[in-house]
């Protein structure tokens, strides 16, 4: 039997390799963006850390998006590939290990992005604290709580979307297996469109529901700015767990590898 630890090591190695490319490209793009500022001297002024952060943030969405897409792609491939499905490990462990390794790789990309913000913070600590105390007066130290809430919502959101994408993928694999062999591609496209439509519709419903819930929170407690996002994160997380259970069932009973 293959241990969870070994499975993680294997999956993580692959994913970190891919993410490593994205991080390298991200840094290269930031450096390239800095070139004009190096010529006009902007970069060598006191503002250098702000300039650096500005580019880092403006490119971060692309790095995040690419990391998300590639990690999703690598993860989904695991479920239909003999390379992984022949390994003597339970489907639950395989699934969890797959998600965990993606999450670690994704956090790695986020950390690199945060480093640029941290550099800026370290070199401009005074101004930032004054700015924070003036514009967020009264909130003060609780700004960290807000950041934590943001991180939790992002994590729960990512888990939710990965679970959802796996569900769509595995359901399509399972349904198309039961349909006639002719026109398989057509069937798959139709199933994907229908499932994605349902997923988005459900997500919108969910969002509306969560915002209502957050509003309710607001009515009851004044500190809802922090607890609201926490509730959102919790709900998303619970839903991700439920979908994951369905995914593991599908892996176990229905979804088989490509021939």
């Amino acid at each position: 039997m293959t241990s969870f630890r070994r499975m993680n090591k294997v999956l993580l190695t692959d994913k970190i390799k891919t993410v490593g490319w994205i991080i390298s490209a991200y840094i290269v793009v930031i450096l390239l963006s800095l070139l004009p500022d190096m010529f006009n001297g902007n970069f060598f002024s006191k503002q250098w850390s702000a300039v650096l952060m500005q580019y880092a943030i403006s490119w971060s969405w692309l790095a995040t998006l690419l990391a998300f897409i590639f990690l999703t792609w690598l993860s989904e491939k695991v479920y239909t590939s003999n390379r992984y499905r022949l390994i003597p490990i339970s489907d639950t462990k395989l699934y969890l290990s797959n998600i965990l390794s993606s999450l670690i790789a994704f956090i790695l990309v986020s950390l690199v992005e945060v480093i640029f913000v941290l550099i800026f913070y370290l070199f401009n600590m005074k101004q930032i604290s004054t700015m924070l105390s003036s514009s967020f007066s009264g909130v003060g130290s609780r700004v960290w709580l807000l950041l934590l809430a943001l991180v939790l919502v992002s994590l729960a959101g990512i888990l939710f979307w990965w679970a959802m994408i796996s569900l769509i993928h595995l359901l399509t694999t399972a349904i198309s297996r039961a349909l006639p062999a002719n026109h398989q591609t057509l069937y798959k496209i139709i199933i994907y469109i229908v499932l994605i439509y349902i997923a988005i519709w459900m997500f919108n419903k969910l969002q509306a529901w969560i915002s209502q819930l957050a509003y309710l929170q607001y009515m009851m407690y004044s500190s809802s700015v922090y607890t609201g996002p926490m509730w959102t994160a919790l709900i998303m997380f619970v839903i991700a767990v439920v979908i994951s259970a369905a995914n593991i069932w599908l892996l176990n009973k229905e979804a088989e590898t490509k021939q």
Partner: peptide
């Protein structure tokens, strides 16, 4: 593929050294 445990939904029993579980079989 059924013996190896990667074809899903095979009916009947498949045993390798008296083990019917999929993970045990894969091992």
């Amino acid at each position: 593929r059924s013996i190896a445990g990667i074809a899903k939904g095979a009916r009947g029993t498949i045993k390798i050294k008296n083990e019917a579980g999929i993970v045990e079989r894969k091992a």
